[in-house]
C-alpha cells in the first residue's frame, strides 16, 4: 500500500520538478529537501505523537502508511526527475517539430523512455521501502517486526525468531527486486 502511494507521490513529484510553473517546481523541491533531510523516524513520531497536540489524532496505520509513502515518494521524485532529464533534448524537439504539444511529447515520447531508465533505481527504492516498513512497529502498527517481538516476549526464542523474520524480509525484498528486473527486461526490447 505504501509502495503504491509512494509511486504516485514520486511520479507527481517528479513531474512537478520538471514542470513549467516555477511555484510547482519550488514546492516539489522543498518537499524533497525536507523529507530527505530529516530521519524517517522523526517524521513518523512527529505525525503520530506531535500531531495530537494540535488536536489531530492520526490512527497508527494511517500514520505508518502515510509516512512511508511520503518518505519514499521524496526519493522517487528525484529518481523520476533524473530519468526524465536524462532523455535527450532531441526527443522533445522531434516530437514538438511534428506538432505534438508539450504534454503529448511528455506522455508519448519522454515518459515511456524515462520509465525504463527509472526502473533500476526504483527497484532499489522499493527494497529500501520494504525494509523501512520495520520502523513503523514503533508506532504500534503490528507488522512483521512487532509481531516477532511479541512472540519473543512469550517464548524467549530470540535467535530463531529474529533469524526467521530476517529471512522473511529477505524474501520480500528479493521478490520486489526480481519483479522490477523482470519488468525491465520485458520493456527493454528496443535497446
Amino acid at each position: 500500500m505504501a509502495l503504491f502511494f509512494g509511486v504516485i507521490a514520486g511520479l507527481l513529484g517528479g513531474l512537478a520538478r520538471v514542470s513549467p510553473p516555477a511555484p510547482l517546481r519550488a514546492m516539489a523541491a522543498a518537499y524533497v529537501s525536507v523529507i530527505r533531510g530529516t530521519p524517517f523516524i522523526v517524521q513518523l513520531f512527529f505525525v503520530y505523537y506531535a500531531f495530537p497536540q494540535l488536536g489531530v489524532q492520526v490512527p497508527p496505520m494511517v500514520a505508518a502508511v502515510g509516512c512511508l509513502a511520503v518518505y519514499s515518494g521524496a526519493y522517487q521524485t528525484e529518481i523520476v526527475r533524473g530519468a526524465i532529464e536524462s532523455i535527450e533534448r532531441g526527443q522533445v524537439e522531434a516530437a514538438r517539430s511534428l506538432g505534438l504539444t508539450a504534454a503529448q511529447a511528455m506522455r508519448y515520447v519522454v515518459l515511456p523512455q524515462a520509465f525504463l531508465r527509472m526502473l533500476p533505481p526504483l527497484g532499489n527504492e522499493f527494497v529500501a521501502l520494504t525494509k523501512n516498513s520495520a520502523l513503523v512497529s514503533l508506532v504500534t502498527v503490528q507488522e512483521l517486526l512487532l509481531s516477532a517481538q511479541l512472540i519473543i516476549s512469550a517464548t524467549f526464542q530470540n535467535f530463531a525468531i529474529y533469524l526467521t523474520i530476517g529471512i522473511m524480509y529477505y524474501i520480500m525484498t528479493t521478490v520486489v527486486s526480481t519483479g522490477t528486473q523482470l519488468l525491465e527486461r520485458r520493456l527493454k526490447v528496443y535497446v
Partner: peptide, 9 residues
C-alpha cells in the same frame, strides 16, 4: 535533424 531523433521506444 542531424542526429535523426527517432523515437527509440
Amino acid at each position: 535533424f542531424q542526429l535523426f531523433n527517432l523515437f527509440p521506444h
